[in-house]
Design a protein around this nucleic acid. Sequence first.
DNA 1: ACGCCCTCCTGTTGGC
DNA 2: TGCCAACAGGAGGGCG
Length: 272
Amino acid sequence: MPELPEVENITNQLKSVCLNTTIVKSNIYTNRLRYNINPNLANIITNQNINSVERRAKYIVLKLENGHILIHLGMVGRIYIDTVAQYQKKDYEHMNLYLNNNSVISFCDHRRFGAIIWIKGELNTCFLINKLGLEPFSIDFKAEYMYKKCIARKVSIKVFLLENKTVVGIGNIYASEILFYSNIRPDRKTNTISLEECKKICEFTRIVLLKAIKAGGTSIRDFKHTNGKVGSFAQQLVVYSRDNRHCLRCNTKILKIIQNSRSSYFCPNCQI
DNA sequence: ACGCCCTCCTGTTGGC
DNA sequence: TGCCAACAGGAGGGCG
């Protein structure tokens, strides 16, 4: 479900409620997620202030006084924000946080591909964080950097973009979209991608992700904001999930192929 | 060392 | 209408 634009939207919504508040209570209902929730987490975080709320890759990072709560939404994870008066326990709710401003934050994930991880101390000590690639909006994410990474590998460019090792935040939807705008087939091997093409990938990564953030993300099926609203970027998708329909640029039929057991979509005429 | 596949789950969808 | 297989937006780990 959630790729960078979706996580960015959720993070901003959380930030507007959580920043500079104190956790007064926390409940863990089911600790079995992708990684089991630290059984002491509720005790550890109670009475701590939330000093910052940021996104890193597809993680939401709550910085507390002596560590960080890392939240990953997996495929279908959701975060709800309620007032104490409104709040009711949700289906598949794994954990919640009661804040001193009368808000309740709940984390729900019926597929349990998500994660809630306590990192004592510095963020970068976590193995999930310290191997991540660059943020697409960072100043260092440039064609030369991308090119150097590409020529060192022989994997399909689409698979490469999903790895989060070179650039983070791109998932299955936006990978297809970015490659369409870059005029590159998803099954091209990275060592055949030119510097000029890397430039396009960097440029369109930023353009597509930014447009999707502004549209509130892509809601195909499960993604919803903390208030239950959907994102509208699905209406702007040009190739993802459009197999057998016509390319909006040249009218050729969009193809779907499977790469590493995941669907990719492209226009065989526009993309080489 | 690298690339590919499996796996963790459960809800939804499409075909018969 | 009902059943069942296939599929879904993530990503670490293990295998060849």
